[in-house]
C-alpha cells in the first residue's frame, strides 16, 4: 500500500485540499494509525453483520408528512449562504460546462 500515491485521490473523495506543507505529517500520522489497526488482520473472525440495536424493538414511525411551521421555514431560509430575491437557494451550477445539443 502506497498511501502517498493514494492521498490525492482520498482527498478528492473527501472533498478538501491538502497543502504541500501538511502532506508529510499527515502521511506519517495516517501510517501510524493504520499500522495500529492492522492488528485486525490477524483476528480470526467469522464474517457477520453488525446488529445495531443493543435492545431489540421496533422504532419505526408512520410515513406521514409533518410540515415545517412558518418560523422553522424562515429559520432554514435565513441560514442559506446565498439566496435569490424569491427565497430560492442560490449556488453554482453543478454542470459547469454547456451541454451539447
Amino acid at each position: 500500500m502506497n498511501l502517498n500515491k493514494q492521498l490525492d485521490t482520498l482527498a478528492e473523495l473527501a472533498g478538501f485540499n491538502i497543502a504541500d506543507s501538511e502532506r508529510e505529517q499527515l502521511l506519517k500520522d495516517m501510517e501510524s494509525i493504520l499500522g495500529y489497526v492492522e492488528q485486525l488482520q490477524d483476528m480470526e473472525v467469522e464474517s457477520k453483520p453488525f446488529v445495531r440495536d443493543a435492545i431489540k424493538g421496533d422504532s419505526h414511525r408512520d410515513d406521514l408528512v409533518d410540515p415545517a411551521s412558518e418560523s422553522e421555514r424562515q429559520a432554514v431560509l435565513d441560514n442559506f449562504p446565498a439566496k435569490t430575491s424569491d427565497d430560492l437557494l442560490e449556488a453554482h451550477g453543478v454542470l459547469d460546462h454547456k451541454l451539447s445539443k
Partner: peptide, 12 residues
C-alpha cells in the same frame, strides 16, 4: 481531516 481521510480510505 485526518479522520475523514482515514474513513474514506477504509471504505474505499
Amino acid at each position: 481531516k485526518r479522520r475523514v481521510l482515514l474513513g474514506t480510505f477504509v471504505l474505499s
